[in-house]
């Protein structure tokens, strides 16, 4: 990967991880069903999360214009691990041996499908 492609990949990693953590922060709002949405739209996190996704969409397009899709999916599997780590740090989610192995299995599977496609 060229330096520019590596930078784009790093940016997709940052925006994807930040976006997922922001959506998790937004989803913690009170209420069920429609009430849940009413409290979420008053919160900054849903807007930060959606904005991160819109930016990531364009960075992803730029990244894919530099590398083949298969390589894109391959390195994109790293996001799974960064979101697991982010969940641990910011939401104190348990990181048991089973969850660690499960994360590695899914990430390896996504990387393999990406590499092979």
């Amino acid at each position: 990967m060229s330096a520019a492609a590596t930078l784009m990949w790093f940016l997709t990693l940052v925006f994807d991880t930040f976006g997922q953590l922001a959506l998790k922060a937004a989803a913690g709002a009170e209420g069920d069903g429609l009430e849940h949405w009413k409290s979420m739209v008053k919160d900054k996190w849903i807007y930060l999360g959606v904005s991160a996704y819109v930016i990531e969409f364009f960075v992803w397009l730029a990244f894919l214009s530099m590398v083949p899709l298969s390589q894109g999916v391959l390195v994109g599997s790293v996001n799974i691990l960064s979101v697991i780590i982010g969940g641990r740090i910011f939401f104190k989610e348990a990181l048991t041996p089973k969850r660690i192995v499960a994360s590695i299995l899914v990430a390896a599977g996504v990387a393999l499908v990406g590499w092979a496609s």
């Binding site: 104190k92 989610e93 348990a94 969850r99 092979a116």
Partner: peptide, 27 residues
């Protein structure tokens, strides 16, 4: 074949997550 193996790894990982859920108390 790599796609089949990759798919099996993904499904296996998700089943393991479901198994792990049973023993975790989330904050």
């Amino acid at each position: 074949l790599p796609q089949i193996i990759g798919s099996l790894l993904i499904v296996g990982g998700i089943i393991l997550f479901a198994v792990a859920e049973a023993e975790i108390e989330e904050p």
